[in-house]
Design a protein around this nucleic acid. Structure first.
Length: 108
DNA sequence: GGATTGACGTGTC
DNA sequence: AGACACGCCAATC
């Protein structure tokens, strides 16, 4: 359970620098999962109960859309956190997504 | 052990 | 530009 796929996802998620975001697919690829981007999102479901504080709000889909914002306690929290980090969010979508996008492979 | 699901991704209509 | 369909893979029921 602990050393399952989730752990790896959380690890990458925690590696995301502040003021930066990443996509599920990018994380999946960093794990070697390739196209199993869904597994990353699926793993994030446990993020709330996993390691203290997984910056799940920094994880968005490839479109820069806050797809998982509804999973937060208050769905608006995700956008709030992102804006707090200096990321501009509009209509549940990240502005300048390319600018704030962080590739996990860049840290590896 | 088979069937279902899921915070996705990419392509096509 | 928005909507629909297919594919992928692991965990849960």
């Amino acid at each position: 359970m602990e050393d399952s796929f989730y752990e790896q996802v959380f690890e990458i998620a925690r590696l995301v620098p502040k003021g930066r975001v990443t996509s599920y697919g990018a994380i999946a690829k960093a794990l070697g999962a390739g196209g199993s981007a869904r597994m990353v999102g699926y793993a994030m479901s446990n993020a709330g109960i996993a390691h203290p504080r997984v910056p799940a709000h920094r994880i968005v889909n490839s479109s820069g859309l806050l797809t998982g914002k509804f999973h937060f306690s208050p769905p608006e929290l995700m956008q709030q956190l992102l804006e707090q980090e200096g990321i501009r969010v509009e209509n549940d979508k990240i502005k300048d997504f390319k600018r704030v996008f962080w590739n996990p492979l860049d840290d590896l």
